[in-house]
Simulated scan of single mutants.
Amino acid sequence: MGDVTTVAVAGETRRRPELAAFLRSRRARVTPQDVGMPPGLRRRTPGLRREEVAQLSGVGVTWYTWLEQGRPINASSQVLDAVARTLRLDRPEREHLYHLAEVPYEPESAPEHAVGAGPEIQGILDALVPLPAVVYNARYDVLATNATYEMMFLREDGRPWTGPLGVRNVLWSLFTMPADKCPVVERHLELPLMVAQLRGAYGRHVGEPAWESFVRLLSEASPYFAELWRSGDVVPPGTRVKTFRHHRAGEIRMTSVSLSINGMPECRIVTYTPNDEESRRSIDLLLNGA
């Protein structure tokens, strides 16, 4: 019972500062012109002031100030909706706000630790060959792969990149490997999106030891990850066009599609489809051992 209480207290302790930082970062993003207000004089930052957010949301200045300071105050869904509209939050950002404020928003339970995908899911991945396919959880732990994925993303020595405690994790690999070994060509575009997607999931796990440890360790290992994490950006999973670099096959242009899995909350199958014939031939050469 004591352990449960400790985790709950830790979650509350982390959730409030995270909520405060998230609101400040979103407020700084909205200019007075965005909401039809004059820019005014002697404005220290380009974003809205706290009193302006309160006024536009129809709430008290003191109440909003306390909310943004992370004080332990209650918030209703109606009030959060008003704040979200003022700050121009999209759907994943709104959901993130609700989780941090501990207000119900399509609640969904999820396992804390990585678990295997099971033989049925593995069979689907294998049937997708020659397309690369993988199962990720919300933290980008690799739960299952097929042969094509393994050929594309193994290290040059034939071993997988692993994260802390031996868990295979894509974010850990991409942020800690040498830049010239990174398989993502447009690293400056793709990595911020992946971190923003991670942060969206993090809102449901604030205070959980596995998540807090992962974020802390990766922030210590990668200053670039730490910088992106501080930005506060949130995006949902979705279809992406990506270019990968393989040490033997060269550049391969792929479209990634993310599919949810019934019975595995917060987990998804991601498949990669070649965008052109040259990329398709490169995949075939990899599978044939060229």
Rank of each mutant, 00 (worst) to 15 (best):
V30C: 06
A196E: 03
R139I: 07
V167W: 14
E150T: 11
S77M: 06
K242H: 15
R281E: 05
F175I: 14
T176V: 04
R94T: 09
E51I: 09
L125A: 07
V195N: 05
A114K: 14
T6G: 11
P132I: 12
F214V: 00
M151G: 11
P39M: 06
R281Q: 05
I252E: 06
M177F: 06
A144L: 01
V270Q: 09
V4N: 07
N137K: 04
P72K: 04
T271C: 05
V83C: 10
A133T: 02
P132T: 11
S279E: 03
P265Q: 12
V53L: 07
P92R: 07
S109R: 14
T255N: 05
L198A: 10
R204K: 11
L217E: 04
L97A: 02
E212K: 01
T86I: 08
T273L: 15
R155G: 06
A54L: 02
T243L: 03
G36Q: 15
A20L: 13
S77C: 08
V7E: 03
P32G: 13
E12A: 12
T6L: 05
P72E: 02
E102K: 11
G207V: 03
P119K: 04
T5H: 07
G40R: 09
P130W: 00
P119L: 07
W211L: 08
D90Q: 11
L191Q: 01
T255E: 02
P160C: 01
V9A: 10
G232L: 11
V83A: 07
L259S: 08
T65V: 08
H188Y: 15
R85G: 15
V142T: 11
G116W: 10
Q55A: 07
E266D: 08
W211E: 01
R14A: 05
G118L: 12
E93C: 11
K181W: 00
L193P: 03
S173N: 03
R240I: 10
L191N: 01
R204T: 06
P178L: 01
L285H: 13
T176A: 00
P274G: 09
S219M: 00
N262K: 11
L228W: 02
M1S: 12
N275C: 13
S282Y: 05
E251A: 06
L23G: 05
D180W: 15
R155K: 13
G238E: 02
A114P: 04
A226K: 01
T255L: 07
E220C: 12
A290Y: 14
R16H: 09
R155C: 04
Y149F: 05
L198K: 02
H247Y: 13
E212G: 01
S213R: 10
L56G: 15
G11P: 06
W172S: 00
E120S: 13
P107N: 08
P164D: 00
L189F: 05
N262Y: 04
R159T: 11
H113Q: 12
S260V: 14
A221F: 00
T239F: 12
A144D: 07
E208A: 08
P32N: 09
Y140P: 01
P111C: 01
V241S: 08
R43L: 06
W66R: 08
A75M: 01
L48V: 05
L218E: 00
E52V: 07
R168L: 13
G40T: 04
E112M: 12
I121K: 10
L100R: 02
W66H: 10
I269W: 03
E208L: 15
A179I: 08
G238R: 14
L41V: 12
D126Y: 06
